[in-house]
Amino acid sequence: MIEIKHLCKDFTLADGSKFRALDDVNLDIGDGEIFGIIGLSGAGKSTLVRCMNLLERPTSGQVLLDGKDLTAMRPKELRQARKGMSMIFQGFNLLMQRTALENICFPLELGGLRGEAAWRKKRAKELLEIVGLPDKADAYPSQLSGGQKQRVAIARALASDPKVLLCDEATSALDPTTTQSILALLKQLNRDLGVTVVVITHEMRVVQQICGRVAILDGGVIQESGDVADIFSNPRTEAGRRLVMPEGKKIHSLPANRQVRLTFNGLSAGEPVISTLAVEQGIKVNIITADTHSIGDETFGEMVLGLPEDETDAARALIYLRDVPGVTVEEVTDYVQ
């Protein structure tokens, strides 16, 4: 659906020097999937999503929508192509002087989409129904809550029957409950309308909740990408670990010699592995951090242990842990920073 090839974006700073915001980004986002792009602030996420619909023109590289290269299009063709790729924003970006209904009519007024005023109104009402705000047609954005505004923005984005919905930190300005409901709506739209959703976020939970695949962006580079379950249960890069275990920094001061990170898959998450280690083997380990998350329907657990100072005990603990089915063991040294 969206293919990004060797995309680079440079910004010229005030002093004339260049800053590379995106460096050789390659992505292939499939039809009908919910794809997450996660990174900390400054990682280049927003620049990347703006390059996808060419709100920012890439310095080099290609953006292909359905096999057609957006970077090679004339302005008119590009405007047409953008109608197949809608976007929602952190700040909602609704027209403040228009009602909810009129906001949704806006993309329908832009031409290329036929229809009389009455037809537009009817279509806008259907969309308001879909996003669950049938009674807010005549409300102005200033009369709506954040979650309602985002719903109107989603309805507006859907008006042009897009194939892709780009979400730039769409839930970052919302409270947790509202975030949940907006994510549920996005998931529902993906399922019912088959729209491909690209989610840009700095929140791991958002990705966990709705994305099938994810790419981790750090310093303008895609550090790793793959299935959400794989990446989150076993991040291979520094950037990945920092996102999955954001508390990593605090571990630094703890006095353990060697540390291992255990990942429990859905099967083993309920097993009392550490108690067994202590009771049956008589080996005491420090639990440094522990967490569980749900990815899709499965529960994943994650734990960082400090091994005993005694080398023999540490080795025995490792042997034991590696034998437990459904547990991935990995020694960690580099992520403690």
């Binding site: 192509a81 953008r82 109608k83 924003f89 403040m96 507006r156 780009l166």
Partner: peptide, 9 residues
């Protein structure tokens, strides 16, 4: 808002 309009073509 201007950016949103641009994104809508």
């Amino acid at each position: 808002v201007v950016e949103a309009a641009q994104a809508m073509g």
